[in-house]
Amino acid sequence: MVRVERALGALLLVGLASGCTSSNPEEKPSFTDPSVAPSVRASAPAWTEPAAYSYALAFGCDESAPFGRYQVTVSGGAVTKSERVGGSALPSASAAVDLGPVTGQEGEEIEVPTLGQLTEMARTATEDGAEVNTTLDTADGHPVKVTINVTDTPDGAQCWTISDYRTS
């Protein structure tokens, strides 16, 4: 009789535990990337880099006066055209932050990334312990702003703001 009571108790326990799981056997478990802020997670779909697209990029954390504005065309996962369309002078080569190759005419220029490269840069910086904030478009999930700070000071951040994103 004691065995029957234990068996029924175990069956009841299994029934309660299974009631806490999904009732839909077709439903697959999902993974949420911990590097994405919770507010972004709930509002933006997953983004996959398209084969061809264009966008405008503002580099610099002061959105009213970025260091550089660029019009960018991407095809096959590579930047095929990057044209500087404005922005203030960039810091000199002696600045603590490496901004890319020197052009000679307008100070230092950044090497403009694809949005996939920018996303990967944010992921790598997060893994390395940097403070990273990424804002995603709520319609299709492409990045619209990425801020990376590898220093201990707020003014050590680098910011990339994306606008006029269009797929081809």
Rank of each mutant, 00 (worst) to 15 (best):
1 M>I: 12
3 R>D: 13
5 E>N: 12
7 A>E: 14
8 L>A: 07
9 G>E: 14
18 S>A: 10
20 C>H: 06
21 T>H: 05
22 S>F: 05
24 N>M: 02
26 E>W: 00
27 E>Q: 09
29 P>F: 07
31 F>V: 15
33 D>T: 09
38 P>T: 05
40 V>H: 00
41 R>H: 07
45 P>V: 05
47 W>E: 01
47 W>T: 00
48 T>A: 15
50 P>E: 08
51 A>Q: 04
54 S>V: 06
54 S>Q: 14
55 Y>F: 10
56 A>Q: 10
57 L>D: 02
58 A>K: 05
61 C>W: 10
62 D>Y: 06
64 S>C: 04
65 A>L: 14
65 A>K: 13
65 A>G: 07
66 P>M: 09
69 R>Q: 15
75 S>R: 15
76 G>C: 11
77 G>S: 00
80 T>V: 13
81 K>E: 07
86 G>C: 00
89 A>N: 06
91 P>G: 09
93 A>D: 12
97 V>I: 15
97 V>R: 10
100 G>I: 14
101 P>H: 04
101 P>W: 11
103 T>P: 03
106 E>P: 06
112 V>A: 12
113 P>M: 09
115 L>Y: 07
117 Q>T: 04
121 M>E: 15
122 A>Y: 13
124 T>P: 12
125 A>R: 11
127 E>H: 11
127 E>N: 10
130 A>Y: 10
130 A>R: 08
132 V>I: 03
133 N>A: 08
141 G>V: 03
144 V>P: 10
145 K>W: 05
146 V>D: 00
146 V>C: 02
146 V>F: 10
147 T>K: 11
147 T>L: 10
148 I>C: 01
149 N>F: 02
150 V>L: 13
152 D>F: 05
153 T>P: 01
153 T>H: 13
157 A>G: 12
161 T>H: 02
167 T>V: 13
